[in-house]
Design a binder for these strands. Sequence first.
DNA 1: CCAGTATCCTGCAGGC
DNA 2: TGCCTGCAGGATACTG
Length: 279
Amino acid sequence: MLPTMPELPEVETVRRALENVLTGRRVRSVQGQTIQMRRPLRPEVIARAVSGRTIERFRRRAKYLLIDIGPPGHGSLLVHLGMSGRLSLRSPEDPREPHTHLTLTFEDDTELRFIDPRRFGLADWLEPGAEARDPSLTRLGVEPLDQELPRILPSLFKARRSPVKTLLLNQALVVGVGNIYATEALWRAGIRPDRSGIRTSAPRLEQLAHDLKDVLSEAIECGGTTLRDFSSPAGELGYFAIELDVYGKQGSPCPRCDAPLKNMILGGRSTAWCQRCQR
DNA sequence: CCAGTATCCTGCAGGC
DNA sequence: TGCCTGCAGGATACTG
């Protein structure tokens, strides 16, 4: 099984899991060390803001997790899992995983640990009002699960000269899509990953929007199934085995036509695709 | 504004 | 066995 990178479905699965387990719980303390990530991690700032406070709500925007800390209007903890980020629910006696950068300890000693070996992720405190000005959040495009996506996506892509794959990864246009689900959606829609947006018809882009919504929804559903199967809520969150058709399967037969899947590099990212099915 | 490339970082796979 | 190299990629800085 391939490792599942945190894209929208994984973040949404983590959000739902945390919502069920931690909503209304009070944080006793916060531990961590100042470290360079996408933004400098500031555990002492987070500790001051969060210690003794109650978790009010878990929200998701794009691949960002927003943890609202009570009382209303107090602020939010912003978390991005980057490439290798994980959140795990543990007990104090569980051995500390390498690259644990931040730990929230709750009143019953449960620990929420943020682990990220590659440090492409971030955890930062957002003061009231900071969310509306934060450059990471203000430059974001449309949520792909928005029911309007099939209407919006063609208008966003039709004037662009970049390959459609690159456009899918552009968070200023559509959010939450990474290399895995961009690759899968293009295969489902039968569109060559390197076809330029401007040379892709509106109906085909509309089809792509539907296929993107479908694959993301199915992955979230799969994550929900995984959560229901947990005997206890403790452990790794958001990592589950969705059945992928083409991602990482260069050389294997296309599930639709059996032709060997090819590989192309776009924007420095490898892309599996079928030369027969995708045009 | 747009398009394309470099950069950050660690773990792991493959070659010899 | 162990060392080296290259690859994996999300967001963003930078260049043209």
